[in-house]
Amino acid sequence: MIQQVYIRPIGFAPSPQSEHGGAIRLAGGMVYASRFAVVLRQDGRVAERWLTGVDDIDGVLGQLPDAVGAEAEAQWSNLRLAHGPLEMGNRTVRLDQPQVVGILNVTPDSFSDGGRYLENREQGRAHAAAMIEAGAAIIDIGGESTRPGSKAVWEGDEIARVTPAIEDCAAMGAAVSVDTRKADVIEAALSAGAQMVNDVSGFLHDARSAEVVAKAGVPVVLMHSPGAWREDLHSGGEYDNVVFDVFDALRARRDAALEAGIAREKIVLDPGIGFGKELAHSTALINALPLFHALGQPLMLGASRKRIVGALSTEAPVDQRLGGSVALGLVGMDAGVQLLRVHDAFDTVQARNVWRGLRDAALTDFSDLPED
């Protein structure tokens, strides 16, 4: 019998004092969790589910089978783990508040921009500069489309696409990430000035990528995609329970990265919204985002302009998905996600700033508490 355990935050508070201290600071950020579901899974099925608060969780964990006890304790510790900043060259990206990662696609078949930034380098440079000025903490540059039906790109072509954009952004002083699943592209991108890697295959497409990242000592984002081994990242999306299956898969990729010699504080995880996932899968994952903090790593959410927005808004076309994209970003903020990968940096940064202002105010708002 295979037993697995998951601790999912399900109740949240604006501040710890509103729960008289009965709330944890989720992943060291600006979200406070007060209620939790502890789920025991046996042979792929949910066998037991306990609901508990901070004061009673030790008793619930004590009821778990010995086989999952250590994992449960680790998850409970991970939920309370405060993450240090990402060190990206001369730039430091703090993770105690949500940060915006601006997308710069230099591909001829991008679903969001139609290749405009590949064909016109100056236009791409101006777009990156605008995102940086708007407050994007990182610029994520990709030279291979990963939308459904797209074809793999030869490494040489991908390198030729991304390196000029990376050099331009690095010259601006930006923190730069390269969105690629190929070791040769990673090496060229790091030489051009990138300081982080975003691998949509979680190191499963190219076995050498983990070695390259470990040697360079840079942060890396490991995303879940069911077709990670294949050319089509979206293939093979079959799940018993998409939330728990993706959780388990990301835990395996985290452990593989650690085994490859990558420092734990440099690993970021991404559930891969839309990659080999139907609408019901993606909505389930977004609603369950707080659970993924139990893996003990910072989280990235990439839902901007994706199919989920169109599907939930009367099939709005890609260029009319701003409101839905910002809405998903706010859901990510409420879940404690540290990195929001978006096309619309200005609007998302503005939403983040308002969100943070309300969070800051909640920490000093005692008006609803009785006087001593």
Results as ranks from 00 to 15, higher is better:
V178F: 10
G143K: 01
V38W: 02
A128W: 02
V197M: 06
L258P: 06
W50V: 01
R49H: 00
L289P: 03
T364G: 11
D157I: 14
I308F: 10
R147I: 13
V349F: 12
D347S: 15
W50A: 11
G296E: 09
M300Q: 11
P85D: 06
P98E: 13
Q97E: 15
W229C: 05
G302I: 05
T92K: 13
S367N: 11
S112E: 07
L250Q: 05
F346P: 00
V243K: 02
E167D: 08
R305L: 10
V212N: 02
L26F: 07
I262G: 04
E87K: 13
T283P: 00
P271S: 10
L289K: 03
Q97T: 13
L269H: 07
H83K: 06
W76E: 09
R147M: 08
I308A: 02
L190K: 04
F292G: 02
A183C: 13
H83R: 08
V349H: 06
M172R: 11
V46C: 12
Q350I: 11
R41C: 08
E231P: 00
G143A: 06
R161C: 13
E71A: 15
G217F: 12
D360I: 15
E265Q: 14
S177H: 04
P65A: 08
G329R: 01
E119W: 00
L358A: 12
E133Q: 15
A137Q: 04
E155C: 08
I186G: 01
H20M: 10
A13W: 01
G44F: 10
D184V: 09
G193I: 06
G173R: 11
G357C: 07
E278W: 07
G217W: 13
K151A: 15
A284G: 09
E158G: 12
M300C: 14
D58R: 14
G332I: 04
A37P: 00
N120A: 12
S282A: 14
D240E: 14
L204K: 14
K182N: 08
V153L: 01
F247H: 15
A303W: 03
L250A: 06
D140Y: 04
D43K: 07
A174P: 05
G274A: 07
A362L: 10
A210F: 07
M196K: 06
D368E: 13
L64I: 00
A130F: 00
L291Y: 03
V46M: 14
D360Q: 14
L250Y: 02
P108K: 04
T107H: 05
M30W: 01
P98G: 12
S235R: 10
A294R: 04
G173F: 11
S145K: 02
V213L: 07
L339W: 05
E48P: 00
E71F: 00
T348C: 05
G173L: 12
D184K: 15
I139C: 05
L26T: 01
A316D: 03
V218Y: 03
D58F: 00
G296Q: 10
L279P: 01
L26P: 02
I166C: 09
D232Y: 13
R208N: 12
A126P: 02
P271Q: 09
L190P: 03
